[in-house]
Write a protein that binds this DNA or RNA. Structure first.
Lengths: 334, 334
DNA sequence: TCCTAATACTTTATCGCTCAAGTTATCCGT
DNA sequence: ACGGATAACTTGAGCGATAAAGTATTAGGA
């Protein structure tokens, strides 16, 4: 399209410079160029531009599950920070699968994104992907899920504390037999379980292995797992669920069994998804400020991308906050 | 990186062809190239490739709201169809804003996506964006929302029928005073309202203007709108809500007012979001097969992108289906 | 044996842009 | 009047790939 812009009788380079507000162009020429450019509604070809500048201004955002609105909210936060800085997020969904994730990252790399934000679905210990990233010197930030054995920038929640906070809350509400529906075998799932254990131990309660159940990761996880729990004896009177979707499923199972929440069984989740308040029983949860996680990760990544020398690694923990709703509110306490 | 591949003593072109299974390369050479490529773990640079081929194998997916899991599900469907064909979806969120949408589309165009799938946030009558697309001959498919005055490929729901179906169902359940919380001023919102009107007219019921309320588009739309409705007299005994998030908010408002759903007020939404079953009152809804919408749109777009001559325009309507849950189930009828 | 044709490569040009290094003018001080 | 600085351009080279056309080399038929 630039050849067309040359009907102003100036060189291609002049046009190029004019478009980028380069210093050595006269105001007059710049205006002429801009005017003509609008007339032809020409748009510079980013792909060609990227090829020579080595910058795409694209950031890959790799998420395990868009249906889980926690991640949708993170994505929103990321976009909100990135857009004003001229970057754009390319969202890819791995559906919680490590291989898909690796493929998607490869795709983003061959597409030459400037950086990556990843909520990884790699099982803990699978560090290969991150080795690759380090070797290729691609700036990246992990979010939500720490990967054991990977030294990397991280933005997320202190999951062990989160687990302890949730479990502690149930105990505070008078629960004597607290169970846990655990999440996937990754940093987050494991840390929350650890927090659960810590809280029980701290209060001198015994940890019963059959109170810790897990299910396939999927829409019915919570429901299925809770049905299992309902069969254990003695039946638990409080359940800390890995996250809100799981907790919502758990509530359904409890009610279906003819029991009451929270009177018979108190339930708490994590993540504070936007519809938690509208569920069968409004759900107590731990708010993780998902949007803030996204924003912070975006900021951190920008720092890394803009830094000439590889910036030093940071781990940023966004404080989480207990949100008490009906599903765990007992005996008038708040 | 190809220069490195030249330590096999073959030309750059040979390597290029080998990587793309081009016909005139001997099996032996191809193997050597592939082997060496793996050793150096070289990845072709898509950005350079795209520059000359004019194909990026990227598809822009422009959505108004990722937090609404209807769209997240659509995205999933799109990705599922696209990935096996070698395409990838770039998801951008417009947050229901027409200007943001135009900017995002521009970005995708300068990034030279091969095609677009758009659930547009343009107000009806704002056809400028689509004019641009047509002029630049970018293949695109609209989903979910018809744009009045734009001749384009479309995949979605017959919204007027959907509205009529939902409203009709409420009437069937014995509601005498059916209200409607309407959606945005776009094709979808308008068509659903039209369907609501049609159903009422068909059954000889009067249409009361104050039974049609709208709110800002946002998380509280349903809640606020329902509070308004509760003040009207006579109070409605059935409400068809634009979509499930709105309906969920409406349910909350009803319960909060000390009334029962569905006994006092029956409620139905649309979209069948994945958590509808877990809500305060399990929500009746119209299932729109969101994933199928995504898949179909992806298929249609691929046809357009692969066609040499601009393929003829198609409008595909995915059948929708009434899902009756507690929020509208009265007097033992199902 | 010679000529055609397929096979397996190599060469050259180009995609749309930017970088770095020229090239003109113009202005200014001495 | 002349060297040097500045402003405002222009010129080549090249980013990493591919398409198209050209060149050997071998095979086979008449």
């Amino acid at each position: 399209m630039k050849d067309i812009a040359l009907d102003l009788g100036v060189s291609l380079m002049t046009v190029s410079k004019a478009l980028r507000n380069h210093s050595d162009i006269s105001q007059q020429t710049r205006d002429r160029v801009l005017k003509r450019m609008r007339e032809l509604n020409y748009q510079p070809d980013w792909i060609a531009r990227s090829m020579v500048t080595r910058r795409t201004y694209l950031v890959g955002l790799v998420l395990p599950d868009l249906m889980h609105s926690f991640f949708a909210e993170v994505a929103k936060g990321v976009a909100r920070k990135l857009t004003p800085l001229g970057y754009h997020a390319v969202i890819l969904n791995t559906e919680e699968d490590g291989d898909t994730e690796r493929r998607h990252v490869e795709i983003l790399l061959t597409r030459k994104v400037d950086g990556l934000i990843i909520a990884s679905a790699q099982r803990s210990g699978q560090v290969e992907l991150f080795e690759t990233l380090r070797r290729r010197e691609v700036p990246y930030v992990l979010i939500d899920r720490v990967i054991h054995g990977v030294e990397a920038n991280f933005v997320g929640t202190k999951d062990e504390d989160l687990g302890a906070m949730a479990t502690g809350h149930l105990i505070d509400q008078g629960c004597k037999k607290v169970a846990h529906i655990r999440g996937p075998q990754n940093g987050t799932g494991t840390a929350r379980l650890k927090g659960y254990r810590r809280a029980l131990t701290k209060r001198g309660m015994t940890i019963r292995p059959n109170y810790i159940v897990s299910g396939q990761y999927g829409d019915n996880t919570g429901y299925e797992a809770m049905r299992k729990l309902l069969k254990t004896s003695p039946r638990p009177d409080g359940v800390f669920c890995y996250n809100d979707p799981v907790a919502a499923g758990a509530v359904k199972a409890v009610l279906e069994a003819g029991l009451r929440v929270p009177e018979d069984i108190a339930i708490i989740g994590a993540g504070n998804v936007h519809y938690s308040d509208l569920l069968r029983v409004p759900l107590s949860t731990i708010d993780q400020s998902s949007a803030t996680i996204g924003e912070t990760a975006a900021e951190l990544l920008c720092e890394c991308m803009e830094a000439k020398t590889p910036a030093e690694m940071k781990r940023i923990f966004i404080p989480s906050r207990l949100v008490v709703r009906d599903s765990s509110r007992r005996n008038g306490t708040s």
